[in-house]
Write a protein that binds this DNA or RNA. Structure first.
Length: 430
RNA sequence: GUGGUCGUAGCUCAGUCGGUAGAGCCCCGGAUUGUGAUUCCGGUUGUCGCGGGUUCAAGUCCCGUCGAUCACCCCA
């Protein structure tokens, strides 16, 4: 009986091509987080199930990859990164100067039905600021999110950050006379409003709130929340206003959010949210007790939706291609044109590699056309032909087939020059 | 958990009224013995997802089942 060759439902095999795309996304995440002064951390993939129960309630365990370990502990694969972070900060946060700005890239797991933009395994990029209650911290995060989508090649026509404030809705609900337990219910109705237009008025009536009043509230976001105003002002000063849409329709599902919340969406393709986050000032206390209380905000971006958006957006896709060519394509493929020169070719290969160039070659005797095919298949920038005229070698730029003969000693500088993607065609024509 | 669609070669798919399975791509070899894009010639590749039923005969019709995918639910 043979084993299934497919990965488990909702899991992925990262073959070199998709692995490279994943690494590109990671590289953008790291680069932007670094520019914003965030430090990278990493937590465990497996946590006690209670960590997630405590935060989100029992209903969430239905979508957890959880089991009992051999020590009879209830454990769960992490479905997100924030609880681990809150746990760590509750325990060790005092040792760090505030504000604390940390990010993590981690694989997460959720036992759900896979569909477009959603798998059972995915990577999340998580950015958090602890110890700063001012909207300036929320703005810093939104700015980071904006720079992230910019870095990936998206314009304000393609992507927007929808900005809202959960606290404004809580005040609205309280003024309408709702008791605490009804507020959560109310927030869920608002959250679903966009998807369930028809049922919303009736649901609101059941709570004694009119649709008209809700619509009037949403129509004037500036009056609804000072925090939103402060964040918008901050982002305008940064020149990012064109990426921002104030939209009180964003509430964010269940959860622990206490103030400003935001989600990043594409404008044209109607995919699910690319990223989302907000302020969660109560979570540290909830997990670590009164002594751990600390204001906090954060957001996360998954790799799945953003990867499909990159694929479908020409400019973003071009940036990806440029990165792949720069980071992965061999600088040279050494063609062994005369087998008796193999020792010289090997010496040359190692010399180039030591100089930091990416170099490949055929390990065993191979017909020359095959070697060129291999070079092209690997998208090498140049073929270096080692033959009878060694130490003079032939360098051929594969993109335009221009070629020249040079001394082996001049090879490194020539190959380094070929790395420049803007080099005009025919450069090597002797 | 519920529903729609789809499962045929490594990949993308065609397959009419039920009549004994095909194309393109890929791959391999050759035209071309020291130079990769085109072209031409030749070649390999099948549990038609699986199980049952109807029939002289099933890739095709029926039932079941598994898988993929999309949507609902949920979305931390």
């Amino acid at each position: 009986m043979s084993v299934s060759l497919k990965p488990l439902k909702g899991f992925r095999d990262f073959l070199p091509e998709t692995c490279a795309v994943r690494n590109y996304i990671f590289a953008c995440w790291r680069s932007v987080a670094g520019r914003y002064g965030f430090s990278e951390w990493e937590g465990p993939v497996l946590e006690p199930t209670d960590l997630y129960r405590k935060k989100s309630g029992d209903e969430i365990t239905a979508q957890l990859f959880n089991f009992e370990d051999k020590g009879e502990r209830e454990v769960a694969m992490r479905p997100e990164l924030t609880p681990s972070l809150a746990r760590i900060v509750a325990r060790e946060g005092r040792a760090f100067k505030k504000p604390l700005k940390w990010f993590e890239i981690g694989q997460c797991f959720r036992y759900e039905a896979p569909q477009d933009g959603r798998l059972r395994e995915f990577y999340q990029f998580n950015c958090d600021i602890f110890g700063e209650a001012s909207p300036a911290a929320d703005a810093e995060l939104v700015a980071l999110a904006v720079d992230l989508v910019r870095e990936l090649g998206f314009s304000p026509d393609e992507v927007t950050v929808r900005l809202s404030d959960r606290a404004a809705w809580v005040r609205f609900a309280e003024e309408a006379g709702l008791t605490d337990d009804r507020v959560t219910e109310f927030l869920q109705i608002i959250d679903k409003m966009e998807r369930a237009k028809e049922e919303t008025p009736a649901k609101l009536e059941a709570l004694g709130i009119s649709m008209e009043k809700v619509e009037a509230f949403m129509a004037d976001p500036s009056g609804a929340s000072e925090a939103i105003g402060a964040v918008v002002e901050d982002l305008t000063a940064r020149g990012m206003a064109d990426y921002i849409t104030v939209d009180l329709g964003i509430v964010r599902g269940l959860a622990y959010y206490t103030g400003v919340v935001f989600e990043v969406f594409d404008k044209k393709l109607g995919k699910r949210a690319v990223a989302g986050g907000g302020r969660y000032d109560d979570l540290c206390e909830l997990i670590g007790g009164r002594k751990a209380a600390m204001p906090a905000c954060g957001f996360a971006m998954g790799d799945v939706v953003i990867a499909s958006l990159i694929e479908l957006t020409p400019k973003a896709n071009a940036k990806l291609t440029e990165f792949l060519s720069k980071e992965y394509a061999p600088d040279a493929y050494v063609v062994v044109a005369a087998e008796e020169r193999r020792a010289d070719a090997l010496a040359l290969v190692q010399k180039l590699r030591t100089a930091g160039l990416r170099v490949d070659y055929a390990m065993v005797k191979t017909k020359i056309p095959k070697q060129f095919q291999a070079a092209e298949y690997l998208q090498a920038r140049a073929a270096v032909v080692v033959g009878d005229s060694y130490p003079t070698v032939q360098v051929k730029r594969l993109a335009d087939r221009s070629e020249t003969e040079i001394a082996e000693s001049a090879l490194i500088s020539t190959l380094e020059a070929l790395r420049d993607p803007d080099l005009p065609p025919g450069t090597l024509l002797a």
